[in-house]
Nucleic acid binder design. Structure first.
Lengths: 242, 242
DNA sequence: ATAATAGTGTCTGTTAGACATTATGCA
DNA sequence: TGCATAATGTCTAACAGACACTATTAT
C-alpha cells in the first residue's frame, strides 16, 4: 500500500461514523395554475443560499418527528399552512456535494394540492413557478423537481393521482382538463369517462351542477370516501403514450 | 402552557438537531431459486440483534461514500461479493422505534441477481429464504422486504426487470418461467413473445442453442447493450392482472 | 417413428379511440 | 330558436389470449 489516503478505513462499522450526516426533508409541492404544473418555492431565510428561491424543507427533528414523513408534514404545515395535503415519498437524494455544509441526505416528498388552497392567506409566502420554466435553484432542487414531475406524469397515466389537484367537487370536463394538463397531451373523452367509471372512485354530488355559460351544465362529482387518501389504480392505464 | 414537556421547541432550525440521526442503508437482495423469489439474509455479527438473520446493510460512510447508492453498492461488494449488480433505490424507512439504538433512517435498495452469482464462493455467508415464508426479522426488515417484493411484482408487469434474475444468456421459455415465478401466475406464451419483441431489448446469440432433452432446442438470447443497465418499459404491460 | 418442447399462424373476444348523436341550459 | 357545451351511442382498429399447428432435436 502507498501513502495514507484521506479515506480512513472504516473500523468495521463498530461505531457510527465520526462525520454526521445532515438529514433533511424537501417537499415538491405541485399545483395547477393556468393549465400548467407549478411548483411552490420559498425564499430561504438563512445560509446557505440565503434569499434564493428553493424547495420548502428542513431538518428532520428526531425529538418531535415520528418519521421522515412526519417531518415533511410538519414543514408543510408550518411553512405552507397545509394541515393535511396529499403527500407521498418520492426518493432520497444524498452525497457530499449537494449541500455546502457537508455530506447531506434529503428525503424528498411530493405533495399535490388544489391551487385554491395555496391562494389562502394561511399559505404563507410561497411562490409558484411553472415546472417547465424553472429558475436556477440551489442544492440539487432542480433534479428533485424533475424527478417529482416525471413521477407524477407516469403515475397519472394509470391512477387517480390528478384528482388531488382538484377541489372537493369538480366536473368531469374539469377533471379531464387536469389530466390533460398533467400529461401534456389531449385525452379521448369517451375513453376517459370509461376509465373514471372503471376506477370507481367518484360519486355524483346530487342536485348540483356548475353554472357558467349558455350551455348544458355539467354533473358535479367528488371522491368516494375509500379513495380520499388512497389512489385508485387502473390496470391498463389511460391509453395515452408514455 | 402546562409543565415543560420532553419535546423541546426547535430553535428555528438554526443548528442541526442535537440528537443525531442514525443513517444506514439496507439491501433487499432478491434472486430466484426453485422458481421462487428468495431474499438474501445475513447473520448479524454485532448488537443489536447479534446472531439474528437480517438484511445486509450498514452505516453510510460520508468519508468514503459519494451517495447512499454508493454505500449500498459498497455493502453489496463487501458482504456479498457482488461488484456490479442491478441496484435501485426502493424507499426510505425512518423513525424512533425501528432501531433500539435511537432515531434511525435507512435508505433501502433493491438488488436483483441471478442465483448462479450467489452460489459463487465469493458470495460470502449469505442465506437465502423464500419471501413467501420469511422468518421473524429484526428492525422493520419484514416491511422493507414486503415493499421490495411488491415493487418488483408491479414493475415486472410492464418492464424488463426480471431479466436481471437471468444470467447473461437465456432462452425465451426460461425467461417466461422467470416472469411467471415473479408474477406468481402463468403468462400467455404468444403474448409474452410479442411483448419481448416489442420491448426490443433482446438480441439472439448466434448459433447457440440450449441442449437438454429429446426435443427441439431453444434459441439463446441476451440483453442488447443499451438495456444492460436500463429497463425497457412497455406502455400497456404484459396483460397479467395486478 | 415417437416424444417432447420450441416456435408460429390464426381466430376471437376485449379494449380504446373516432365520430356522430342526443341532452340541456342560456341568450 | 339557436348556440355552446355535456353526455352518450356506435363503429372500427388495435390488442391480448386461446388454440392449433408446424419445427426440430434425441431416443
Amino acid at each position: 500500500m502507498p501513502a495514507p489516503t484521506p479515506k480512513p478505513a472504516s473500523p468495521a462499522d463498530a461505531l457510527a461514523p465520526a462525520a454526521p450526516v445532515i438529514c433533511t426533508v424537501d417537499i415538491v409541492l405541485l399545483t395547477l395554475v393556468d393549465a400548467e404544473l407549478q411548483v411552490a418555492l420559498l425564499q430561504r431565510d438563512r445560509e446557505p443560499f440565503q434569499g434564493a428561491l428553493a424547495l420548502p424543507g428542513g431538518y428532520i427533528h428526531p425529538q418531535e418527528d415520528d418519521s421522515a414523513w412526519d417531518a415533511a408534514a410538519r414543514v408543510l404545515r408550518d411553512k405552507a399552512g397545509l394541515p393535511n395535503p396529499y403527500l407521498e415519498q418520492l426518493a432520497t437524494f444524498s452525497g457530499p456535494g449537494r449541500d455546502p455544509r457537508g455530506w447531506s441526505l434529503s428525503v424528498a416528498y411530493c405533495a399535490l394540492v388544489p391551487a385554491a388552497e395555496l391562494a389562502a392567506p394561511t399559505a404563507g409566502p410561497l411562490v409558484l413557478r411553472p415546472v417547465a420554466r424553472l429558475p436556477s435553484l440551489p442544492f440539487d432542487h432542480r433534479a428533485i423537481i424533475d424527478t417529482a414531475v416525471a413521477r407524477v406524469r407516469t403515475k397519472s397515466q394509470y391512477s387517480s393521482l390528478p384528482v388531488y389537484l382538484c377541489g372537493q367537487v369538480f366536473t368531469l370536463p374539469q377533471l379531464q382538463a387536469v389530466y390533460e394538463a398533467v400529461l401534456g397531451e389531449p385525452v379521448n373523452k369517451v375513453s376517459f369517462r370509461r376509465k373514471m367509471d372503471e376506477l370507481a372512485m367518484l360519486e355524483p354530488v346530487e342536485g348540483a351542477m356548475t353554472t357558467g355559460g349558455a350551455h348544458r351544465p355539467a354533473q358535479l362529482w367528488r371522491l368516494r370516501k375509500p379513495f380520499e387518501r388512497r389512489l385508485s389504480l387502473s390496470e391498463r392505464g389511460l391509453g395515452v403514450g408514455g
